[in-house]
Design a protein around this nucleic acid. Structure first.
Length: 847
RNA sequence: GGGUGAUUAGCUCAGCUGGCUAGAGCACCUCGUUUACACCGAGGGGGUCGGGGGUUCAAGUCCCUCAUCACCCACCA
């Protein structure tokens, strides 16, 4: 087969993926002494993949291909996420374009509409996986709204209910009045902003507040218990003048009050402030809700009813002014305000009846497992962070007032609001049981509740064969940003349901930042779309470019130069193969690791080291270093030296063996190009590279390898001399060096010499880096020009010698450092002395 | 207010349990068309590893401290 001069990924990539797929190459083998299972964190089914996904897919596919070649029974399980709230927000925007709102439809209607909407975007999504070369087992593909996911979530809900770990309660929750749903604490983002701080008269007090509009919900005034200024009022009920006449209010003493802040007096609005809620619990205060779910004021706000929060604030301040109750406004006050992470609306703490999971209790066994080191984290520090998070986490609100999600399987007695029953007939709105009527909870689960089951539910736990074989997963690889919302919950729920951690290793990758080093964001305009890149450079190039120079947990900028380097490397592989195939065209045969030439032995030595290094680095998830090692073995050792040497001294079966090894080693990093090449080889038959065994480290003769190393030294010095002296035609002379007799043509070829000749006595420029006697045939004038260079070398060598000497003169070093190290230094000193002598001799000869 | 991470060549970044003259890619300089590759080959220049202290025979690596930049957590009205 004739190969084109440069590798063109477009010609091959999609065919190669088809080839793998048709051969069932991604299917778990069901054999092997080790299983290696991993779930692909399901991307949002309704959104395209971004460059961060590309990194994630690449890392995971790399691990999976390596494991497969190691002979493991590999299951890489793909999926898609319905992404509840996220997707509903997208759909709401879609509705808005048509002039509609989600509130025009019932939740059931919305659900079917969104289901269809998401379905339309799905085919696209599968294509993206293929372009990235993801060797996932498509047979195990799971969507987060598949029936078994729903069933499992219901079972867990019931179990939590029965175990008393879930409760229905009226609590203050984070609520977005724009999207009209509550959130878990972790979903709220905070923003620094300037909020006017209003000082107002409040009976005998002056107090400061950022929220004058909630004063109709005030049910107490709080002061610090030890604040002398206000001691006389504590526990009294005061008559206070407000906007609409006077009202009564209690004064309580509570540690929460900071005497230094404002006037040291706080109005307590339990229904609209988390702090105040706590105070209310301690002092048995009533909570009066004054804001509706749509963000308007209710009847308790009197003439302000129906106004939005912002309007009401203005109006209330105006009214306070008119009543001379407003003292001053501090416009410089900075505080942190909770925001909806989607629309930026200020989060309103709202009293709502919701389902909460008792996290303190539920997390206990998970914390124990983490503390016992049942899971290894990469980077390691994330383990303690997870433990700390779980130890402090508050109860988890899992109710969401949206349509797109798994309906909560709970029904409430119409006549007795305190009676709830568990029932999975969520397609019914009402149930009649034993003469009692029940109404379904209209809410759905927080998406993270069901996805917290992922390693468990995708394997159809706990009775399936899959579950028995592949649980716990070997690895959970995902972005560091979802350690808390996802990883920690999978651990908690996994341990709760199975008594076992859901995965043994956790590898967290960092964020892909923009080229400018900032977080990618649409508004900054530094977002990188992977698809044009895939088209331009190819999948392998993106993969290598994304992986190189990255370490666990660290965010790093997108660097296009690395993608280019990846593309060039793919091309290097291609051309190495092109050379080998061209040169072997008329020499049919099989690969063989039996060494013949000195270059063979040297290459095998390097290959052995590289295989060992890459394997151990990949075992430790050190992807960047593993790639680096592979890259330099292929490019520097195999292409630049071994292939070059083969042009003079050829061993066809070793060339084949070397190429095969290169392809295997590089396959996890560059699957498409390596498989493409594999398919062009005339001795690989119908086999696939993806299914080959990981190369085993070969053996070699070290003496032979050392001879080639010496040849390299000689060639390198000749190249340096030629380059620095701008020599065109040179001959090498030597006396009595056996390997030079045998490898004259090789050296001449590698160093671009006119010839290599054995002579009786030396003439010209003596090589200094080798202990053998070799000369270049240069005249006196050229030698003089070289003198300066030699003197520089001498100075450097002297500096080095002094360093070694100093180290060895240090008694403490010789005594305390490992013997191996000291011996090494002695050897280095000796070598440097020899080198110095050589250089000195040369300089003297010129003088 | 707590916590974590980062600071290494012009740029983007590696550098695991302390140990050869601190690396890579890109960029830069000089040559170069030789049985694959100019997406190439050969050679070269460039960093006292943010500042300061300490531990050690030995520190980019460990400890303390300061500075700067990220991120996370927390209920300051």
């Amino acid at each position: 087969m004739k190969l084109s001069k440069t590798y063109n990924h477009k010609e091959f990539e999609s065919d190669i993926y088809d080839l793998w797929e048709k051969a069932d190459a991604f299917k778990p083998s069901g054999k092997g002494k080790n299983t290696f299972s991993m779930v692909l964190p399901p991307p949002n089914a309704n959104a395209g993949l971004h460059i961060g996904h590309a990194l994630m897919f690449n890392i995971q596919d790399l691990v999976v291909r390596y494991r497969r070649m190691q002979g493991d029974d590999v299951l890489w399980l793909p999926g898609a996420d319905h992404a509840g709230f996220e997707t509903q927000v997208v759909y709401e925007k879609h509705l808005a374009k048509e002039g509609k709102s989600r509130f025009d439809f019932s939740r059931d209607e919305l659900y079917s509409q969104i289901y269809e909407f998401v379905g339309q975007n799905r085919s696209n999504f599968d294509q993206m996986f293929r372009q990235l070369g993801a060797s996932v087992d498509w047979n195990h593909f799971t969507f987060t709204l598949d029936q078994n996911v729903i069933d499992t979530s219901y079972k867990t809900f019931k179990k939590l209910w029965d175990d008393g770990l879930i409760y229905r309660g009226e609590r203050l929750v984070n609520y977005c009045t724009q999207h009209r749903t509550s959130f878990a604490d972790i979903e709220v983002v905070y923003e620094d902003q300037k909020t006017p701080l209003y000082y107002m008269k409040y009976g005998p007090f002056e107090l400061a507040t950022t929220r004058p509009e909630t004063k109709f919900g005030d049910t107490a005034i709080a002061v610090h218990p030890e604040d002398e200024r206000y001691k006389e009022y504590v526990d009294k009920t005061l008559e206070v003048e407000g906007i609409n006449g006077t009202f009564e209010i209690r004064v309580v003493a509570d540690e929460m009050v900071d005497r230094e802040f404002g006037t040291g007096v706080v109005k307590i609005t339990p229904a609209h402030d988390f702090n105040d809620w706590e105070v209310a619990q301690r002092h048995n205060l009533e909570a009066k809700r004054v804001i509706n779910h749509d963000g308007t004021m209710n009847h308790l706000a009197g003439q302000f009813e129906g106004m939005t929060i912002a309007e009401a604030r203005k109006a209330v301040v105006q009214a306070l002014k008119e009543k001379s109750l407003l003292i001053k406004i501090d416009d410089d006050y900075q505080n942190r305000v909770a925001k909806c992470y989607k629309c930026g609306t200020t989060i309103e703490p709202m009293i709502m009846d919701q389902w909460f999971i008792n996290m303190e209790e539920l997390a206990k066994p998970a914390i124990k497992a983490l503390e016992a080191g049942k899971i290894t984290f990469y980077p390691a520090a994330k383990r303690q962070q997870t433990i700390d998070y779980l130890k402090n986490v508050r109860d988890w609100n899992i109710s969401r007032q949206i349509a797109w999600g798994i309906p909560i399987p709970a029904f409430q007695n119409v006549d007795d609001p305190d009676e709830w029953i568990f029932n999975e007939n969520v397609h019914e709105h009402t149930l009649e049981i034993d003469g009692k009527s029940y109404r379904r909870d209209p809410d759905v689960f927080d998406t993270w509740f069901s996805s917290g089951h992922w390693p468990y539910v995708t394997l159809d736990g706990p009775d399936s064969e899959d579950f028995k074989r592949y649980y716990p997963n070997a690895l959970m690889e995902t972005g560091g940003d979802i350690l808390y919302p996802w990883v920690s919950r999978m651990i908690v729920l996994g341990v709760y349901l199975t008594g076992e951690v859901p995965f043994k290793d956790v590898y967290l990758h960092g964020m892909v930042r923009g080229e400018d080093g900032r977080k990618m964001s649409k508004s900054i305009g530094n977002v990188v779309d992977p698809y044009p890149l895939l088209d331009q450079y190819g999948s392998d190039a993106i993969r290598m470019g994304m992986i190189s120079g990255r370490s666990a947990g660290e965010s790093a900028s997108y660097a296009p130069a690395k993608i280019v380097a990846g593309r060039n490397f793919a091309n290097k592989l291609w051309n190495v193969a092109r050379f080998v195939e061209g040169v072997l065209e008329d020499k049919p045969g099989k690969p063989d690791s039996k060494a013949n030439t000195t270059a063979d032995h040297w290459m095998l030595r390097d290959l052995q080291q590289s295989i060992n290094a890459v394997s151990s680095l990949l075992n430790d998830y050190r992807f960047s270093e593993a790639f680096d090692t592979t890259y330099h073995f292929v490019w520097d050792s195999f292409a630049d030296w071994y292939v070059e040497a083969s042009k003079r001294e050829i061993n066809p079966s070793m060339l084949r063996y070397g190429l095969e090894s290169v392809l295997k080693l590089a396959h996890p990093f560059a699957p498409f190009v390596t498989e493409t090449i594999w398919q062009t080889l005339d001795w690989t038959g119908e086999t696939l590279l993806i299914s080959q065994e990981w190369p085993k480290a070969p053996s070699y003769d070290d003496k032979q390898a050392v001879i080639f190393e010496e040849i390299k030294t000689i060639v390198a010095e000749i190249r340096l001399i030629r380059s620095s002296l701008q020599l065109k035609k040179v001959n090498l002379y030597f006396t009595d060096v056996d390997f030079l007799k045998d490898h004259g043509a090789l050296i001449a070829g590698l160093a671009q010499l006119e010839g290599v000749h054995e002579v009786e006595a030396g003439q010209g420029l003596h090589l200094t880096q080798t202990s053998y006697s070799c000369w270049l045939d240069v005249d006196k004038e050229t030698m003089d020009r070289y003198r300066e260079k030699l003197e520089k070398q001498l100075t450097e060598a002297e500096k080095q010698r002094d360093g070694y000497k100093k180290r060895l003169d240090n008694e403490a070093y010789v005594k305390q450092a490992p013997k191996k190290l000291v011996d090494e230094t002695k050897q280095q000193l000796e070598d440097t002395n020899t080198l110095l002598a050589n250089i000195q001799k040369e300089i003297e000869r010129f003088s």
